[in-house]
């Protein structure tokens, strides 16, 4: 009996072998030329563009960092300047205030001294006046009492001497 449905796992079929080789070769050529070449080119192009973008982004970030650093430095400088100006202003104000107080104080002292002097002078004058008045009154009184016998000229001299003695004491 002829083997009709004889099938084995390992069929040696040269026809299939040659066909497969031809078809595979054809597909390799077609796929390589029209599919993989453009596809791989697109992929590598995209990768390089992504790499480029990443590098650009990194550069931009670096620049931004640089700018930020510069800004920071400027800000710190400005702050320091402001602080200095403020301190100076406060010091100035303090100085002016102290000066003013000093001045006011000295003025007040001066005024006080002047007033004291005036008072002293006035007191002296008043005392002098008072003494004069008292002397006059005493003379008038004594005159009235001793009108007749007492020589007015002689007595005045006496009283003046007395007053001078008082002043000396």
């Amino acid at each position: 009996m002829t083997p009709v449905f004889a099938n084995s796992l390992v069929n040696v079929d040269p026809g299939l072998f040659i066909w497969t080789a031809v078809v595979f070769f054809g597909f390799l050529l077609i796929l390589g030329r029209f599919v993989w070449k453009p596809l791989l080119a697109s992929l590598s192009e995209r990768e390089s563009s992504i790499r480029g973008s990443l590098e650009a982004a990194e550069q931009a970030m670096k620049n931004a960092e640089e700018i930020r650093k510069n800004n920071d430095a400027a800000l710190r400088e400005a702050e320091a300047l402001a602080l200095k100006l403020r301190r100076e202003a406060v010091e100035e104000a303090e100085r002016v205030r102290a000066e003013r107080i000093e001045k006011a104080k000295s003025e007040a002292d001066e005024l006080l001294a002047k007033a004291k002097q005036t008072i002293e002078t006035e007191k002296k004058r008043a005392l002098d006046e008072l003494r004069q008045e008292v002397a006059d009154l005493a003379i008038q009184a004594a005159g009235k009492i001793l009108h007749a016998e007492l020589d007015a000229e002689k007595n005045r001299k006496l009283v003046d001497r007395f007053l001078q003695d008082l002043n000396r004491n």
Partner: peptide, 24 residues
């Protein structure tokens, strides 16, 4: 087997040809 071998090739061609043109 040859026919399905060729189908596989055609499928690769169609799918990845589409992919390549999509990239384009």
């Amino acid at each position: 087997h040859l026919a399905w071998f060729a189908f596989a090739g055609v499928l690769v061609l169609v799918l990845f040809g589409r992919l390549a043109s999509k990239y384009d």
